[in-house]
Design a protein around this nucleic acid. Sequence first.
DNA 1: TTCCTGACTCCAG
DNA 2: CCTGGAGCCAGGA
Length: 130
Amino acid sequence: MIKKSSSQYTQLKEDSVKPKKEFTFFEDVYEVVRLIPKGRVSSYGAIASYLGTKLSARMVGWAMNAAHQVRPKVPAHRVVNRNGMLTGKHHFSTPTEMEVLLKKEGVLIENDTVIDFKSKFWDPSKELGM
DNA sequence: TTCCTGACTCCAG
DNA sequence: CCTGGAGCCAGGA
């Protein structure tokens, strides 16, 4: 039982002014997503990788979950999984919202998957240079 | 505090 | 081709 007291860390921080953490990761995710060109799509893993946390693709999805209430607007519909599947469609106002938005931008969907995903794929590490 | 879940991905069978 | 488990880490119960 290594029951340590957290008090030993309390003096480490004096920034009692800031109740919240920095949330830089989420903000970075939103910024990258906003850079995805219209008519193109990216993946959770690609974004995570670009931000240096390759193994945290799930966190990108988690960030998208809260992206709807973030301003400026975040085009979350342009983020799909590595296979081009619209795994996040159920998190939009309607189950077809994501697909409709993409089609409006020229990205065709079939069976919940982006058609010709390979050519529509936008890799931040490659496009933004790394 | 601990435990569980997830808009993911990789790897082994 | 499909399935399951591990690693990731922020929140909610």
